[in-house]
Design a protein around this nucleic acid. Sequence first.
DNA 1: AATGGCATGGCTGCATACAGCTAATGCAAT
DNA 2: ATTGCATTAGCTGTATGCAGCCATGCCATT
Lengths: 224, 224
Amino acid sequence: MSTNPDAPKTTVETIQAEILRRICFLDYKPGDQLKEAELATEFGVSRTPVRDALSRISHLGLVETRNGVGTVVVALTDTQIRHVYDMRLELAGLIGRVSPNAITDRHRQSVKAMLATAHALSGHFDVRRYVEVNHDLHELIASLIGNETLRAFWWQTYYQAASTWHRVGTLLGADAAQALQAELLDVATALEHDDAEAIGYIQRTHIGYGYKRIKTRILGSEEV
Amino acid sequence: MSTNPDAPKTTVETIQAEILRRICFLDYKPGDQLKEAELATEFGVSRTPVRDALSRISHLGLVETRNGVGTVVVALTDTQIRHVYDMRLELAGLIGRVSPNAITDRHRQSVKAMLATAHALSGHFDVRRYVEVNHDLHELIASLIGNETLRAFWWQTYYQAASTWHRVGTLLGADAAQALQAELLDVATALEHDDAEAIGYIQRTHIGYGYKRIKTRILGSEEV
DNA sequence: AATGGCATGGCTGCATACAGCTAATGCAAT
DNA sequence: ATTGCATTAGCTGTATGCAGCCATGCCATT
């Protein structure tokens, strides 16, 4: 149940969360090699907790460790990307239906902040900021999910999809920022109306749009 | 993507799979304490790979490790059980819709074998066998799920729900066996008709029945 | 008799040393 | 020049020792 990175208290969880963040933000790109010893010295610990963190991440399918070689960030196959997105579409629809959490003013305020950033991005695009806003939006949506299991799954698919999003941002540039802006506007409206169910469907819709862009620009054209 | 226990090749994965199996079959009951040193000697390895396996399992939320105390099998709270079951209901509906795998004669044959066992159980009930058949059925259903992500989630919720099932089996006895028999009959029929989508809805239906039994017999009566 | 503090046993958390595996490099033979 | 093999450097996998933490039970004090 602790797949979401809430309260990373132990050393291992802290390291795990940091590595996951770097994978999300593409500081570690698919194919990159992560060396236990290197990370250990960076975090000022021994290899043991680093190994532990990497082991968990590998169990999530985001890195692959081979004996004698190293730990590399996995590049999802086209089929895997499709599977992840198909599931995200389905999970999104459940967000508002399965015991959602209450919407607070904090939510409404942070969306407004994101909107401002997205607006700025439309003028002067920056992939890094784009991915960061996406991340913030994800965290906000996740905080609305009351069902622990669903929230864990939502995070899991997010991590798997994150690097693909980054590629989309790179390819589309300011267009991606505008799409994000549109999504945020819809979310803001739904929050104003205190309509959690709408949030899910909005997510579903915009994930669908993103999926379509990915299909045409990244994935092979063969249909499932 | 490797949340399903297919091909546990490495030592750690082998140990992890074995411990998970024991949790499923309630060899380890909620509250039991698992000692790293003990398991290490049992598996004939050092504490290191055992620790690694336990760490992964704790990340799945099935055990909890506290420094200086030990690793204990967690007892899901009522709310958590509800969350898991709510999600299983939703996921079941997706089994046949999201890129299912082809149904083969192997599937049809193994269901027949399970039916025979379930029939025997109706006469002479044995909790252990009951849980085993449930496990086999789960593996069969999971093998029909083509979407890797969904399959991983299906396994995850199964592990979380497994010990609860065991309690149901203990409480209901032969009645549980009859319910299982009914479920297997429905599955067999769907397999004969080569209808993967029906499988999902059958699962959903019977999970719903089981959920209802759990609600009245195990969970507190307060509604969500 | 009851309670508070203290000592102790046992467990996990972490560090480190070593063994095993893999890939790449350089050398030799053709 | 090319191919094959042997060596080696560098990584992960495992074992083990030690430090830190927690719960239990005992003992002293009131």
